[in-house]
Design a protein around this nucleic acid. Sequence first.
DNA 1: CGCTCTGCCGAACAACGTTCGGCGAAGCAC
DNA 2: GTGCTTCGCCGAACGTTGTTCGGCAGAGCG
Lengths: 153, 153
Amino acid sequence: MDELDSAIVRELQRDARQSNRDIARKVGVAPSTCLERTRLLRERGVIRGYHADIAPSALNRGVQALVSVQVRPLSRTVIDAFKAFAAGLPEVTAVFVMAGSDDFVIHVSAQDNDRLHAFLVDRLSQRKEIVDFRTSIIFQHLAKHDPAPLPGA
Amino acid sequence: MDELDSAIVRELQRDARQSNRDIARKVGVAPSTCLERTRLLRERGVIRGYHADIAPSALNRGVQALVSVQVRPLSRTVIDAFKAFAAGLPEVTAVFVMAGSDDFVIHVSAQDNDRLHAFLVDRLSQRKEIVDFRTSIIFQHLAKHDPAPLPGA
DNA sequence: CGCTCTGCCGAACAACGTTCGGCGAAGCAC
DNA sequence: GTGCTTCGCCGAACGTTGTTCGGCAGAGCG
């Protein structure tokens, strides 16, 4: 992970669909070199994939929420099972396994408030290991897809 | 947003760096048609961008947390200012503007616990509009980059 | 000093992106 | 039904790109 790798990664974070030649030119190496570096980054697991960022409303996901969940007992079995369950639900877009008073935070999106409510009542609250959950609606969601490098790192 | 558009979007969510020809073949149209559709999706704002998914540890972001923040007074001025402030910090990877008992949830990542703590104490708690914040460490973060379509949507 | 290894380069060829003219189906007025 | 218009898809063509590979230069080392 030298400076060249970082530069390539930064470019791919910014725009994953620009041509390898463009990236090579921007980072100052030959296209073949850039391609080989990218291949290695992928192989090493640094680059995990390339994904289009889609407007949620276009996917009929106009309403988003964060759901904090407590499960009991706090055993590996229960945690893994709930994690797999949550990750498998189509309304769930992300699962955070947490330390602190909540065991999970689940990022959920649905077409409208009614369907969000139905999801919570019909799907989520069915699970017996859940002892409590709180839902907070998301008004806005700003994601940084090309974060500035950390200071002093 | 017909079935063809959806199929193209799905493919680009799955792998944004596959060739236009591959996508065209998978969704069953000519490459030129696929390209035109993709161009329109981008123009309409359905596709907002293409980004590489990078392993956080490779970016020196081994520790992640969700920070729930309350600010006062709850005016547009204060909310917008804090949102811009948070989004500008390099440790911040996402900002959620919330309804409910918390006004913001901030997704933060740092190199280690010390630097996370330093960030919270030196940067975040400096802001006078913050009346309270709670930090929860993230053990695991599962993100679904190609979510299954919503049922009945 | 000479050897080896590593990583970068440039050329070559197959594959690709992108444009454009044309064509067929759908919708509509009459 | 018939003629007209419009729209979206197709396939060909051309410039550009991805990908491979042989070679070379510099670093490290004995």
